[in-house]
Design a protein around this nucleic acid. Structure first.
Lengths: 339, 339
DNA sequence: ACATAATGCACAACCGATTGCGCAATACTG
DNA sequence: CAGTATTGCGCAATCGGTTGTGCATTATGT
């Protein structure tokens, strides 16, 4: 810990130790030695010298010379829900399988941080950049294009790069349908149902609202426009919305379409604080959390298919032909007692 | 997207464009130009050329030459619970504040993956490596030492590097005490209480068991050794343990000390599957999840103080004097209706 | 035995930044 | 106006690998 300048071993040191040359050592260590006709004997000697000297290659130098970093980057709003955290985790695992090193950065849904992080990643010469849930994917795509880095959008689509997203409209329609079935089973098929959470500016929320409306229309149920309340993603935004509804209608809605687990958290807190009972209301949440699900088996939840989404992502990266604005939609799954 | 070899701009290109020299361009771009007595006029010219050519420095080259990467690494078991995900998130934010780039890798509680990831990070020349919840922190520390990289342990302590962890024993004692208070308030002060989850091999679980016992002892309550069941971290391990208890005692315990949110998930699933009612039992969980908390306000939960832990971590990195095996313990907090 | 081919390895030029040093031009001093 | 100090900038070496090329040495063919 206290020794100053430990001076890491280089291939030059190894060359001396093994009584050989740097180029030979390099070839042996990176596996190209056969094609360079290095004798097996010398190769094993160098290899053993390297291992017992605890040598490790300097990726900076390798990347510089090869003009390929072997790194792929991802920017992500947050880690703190199951959807995003599993995206990060699976992305990393898939990258590793392919011999790539994944670096992930959280940008807190802040366009400036998104830009900065993307710039950082470009500086580190990532080979591709995945923009997950970016508030402004297109300006990042522009940046990347200017510097010759391919981008792919995940979760939220953009116009300047291909995108892999959930089938939000379908998912929302299925979720709403399940909610309506549940209401019907309770003998209240025409009771009011509201939509809470998300941002109207973002594509996913708009699609989910569209799916919500389609499902209602299909049953001939009228949906007053002001029962749709995309009040943002923060949990604290839910309380005023519910207060407002209660004040106006003197009663709670019979069902709530909740647009994210973070909104669900805010709603649950409000119910608890106000002393209302959640079990009297049908909840459908577009997003899935295992703890929420296990405590509320009657909740209907949409689980987005992260493994498939990430699989498609890598297919795109690995050269499947695609066009800039192309959007690949992955079907999510409805969980909860659908009886 | 289709242009082959876009050839990124270098300081040599900029030098030509600005009619200057690479060394001058370099100095201007990295901010050392004043000390190199470059005229303000030339500096602004170069800067404007660089910005409208969308130049970005090649960190690989910079790192190679400077022999400092500006990168710090962290290995982490998983992202999929609030404790670890907030560790990653706060670590990243703090690194960014200090002009460092954080790279985080999940290692799935697998010693081999831990080793591999650590080796990867060393190859990328991280300046420090944080081992979070590592199953075998010491062999990683040894590896790092051999290659001149400082390590710090987080969450689980090691002998060969300083560690920042939660005060597990204190937290467990406080949590157990809160559980006992709750039982007493229900008029059942001497009812059985069990401990479920975690691995006996890991330091944190052992400490928590010790704290659990201390709290019981302090009240003169006897705790049969086989009421303590560190059955692992996986959620599915909980079911057989509860089955066994029920079979033996013909009744459920009145209180359960749950050693992680993942175990809590398994327990909740078992209660649901078996048709038992969780609200008749006092639950205390060593770990915190906001959704679990909001759905079960009566749950007692321990929230580890991640912001402070990460703060201490950076203090250690920034050269506070420390000795190899030193352990810094941070007090966690008990949440839940403590009335 | 001699020409040719194959084998085994090392040389040296990169990749793109950083930085010690030196040189010219200008400013200042007496 | 000669001599020194300061200003402003570029040269070239360097970080640690990679890779095109070339030169001995040994093997093969006739």
């Amino acid at each position: 810990m206290s020794t100053e300048a430990p001076k890491r071993l280089t291939i030059y040191d190894l060359a001396k130790l093994a009584d050989s040359s740097p180029s030979t050592v390099s070839a042996v260590l990176n596996g190209t030695w056969r094609s360079r006709r290095i004798s097996e004997k010398l190769a094993t000697r160098i290899l053993s010298v390297a291992t017992d000297a605890d040598y490790s290659v300097n990726m900076q130098a390798r990347a510089l010379r090869r003009e390929r970093s072997g790194i792929i980057g991802m920017i992500l709003p947050l880690y703190d829900n199951r959807y995003f955290s599993s995206i990060a985790q699976i992305f990393e695992a898939e990258a590793r399988k392919r011999g790539l090193f994944a670096i992930v950065s959280c940008t807190n849904r802040d366009p400036q941080q998104e830009q900065d992080a993307a710039q950082m990643m470009i500086s580190h010469r990532v080979e591709k950049l995945i923009c997950t849930g970016a508030t402004d994917p297109d300006s990042i795509a522009r940046m990347c294009q200017a510097q010759g880095v391919e981008t792919i959008n995940l979760d939220l689509p953009g116009k300047l790069a291909p995108s892999v997203i959930s089938a939000n409209r379908d998912g929302a329609r299925m979720l709403t349908k399940a909610i309506l079935d549940r209401l019907k089973n309770c003998g209240r098929p025409n009771d009011p149902i509201i939509f809470v959470g998300g941002r109207i500016e973002d594509h996913n929320t708009r699609e989910r609202i569209a799916g919500f409306k389609e499902a209602l229309d299909a049953r001939g149920i009228e949906s007053p426009e002001n029962n749709i309340m995309p009040c943002g993603y923060s949990g604290s935004r839910a309380a005023p919305v519910l207060d407002g509804y209660l004040l106006k209608h003197k009663a709670l809605p019979s069902a709530i379409f909740v647009n994210s687990t973070i909104t669900l958290e805010g709603i649950a807190r409000w119910f608890h604080d106000q002393g209302h009972n959640m079990s009297e209301i049908v909840f459908g949440c577009f997003d899935w959390d295992p703890l929420a699900a296990v405590f509320n088996p009657h909740f209907l939840m949409v689980r987005q298919n992260v493994p498939i989404m990430v699989e498609r992502l890598f297919e795109l990266m690995e050269g499947a032909r695609y066009t800039a604005g192309e959007v690949i939609e992955i079907q999510p799954e409805i969980l909860g007692d659908l009886t």
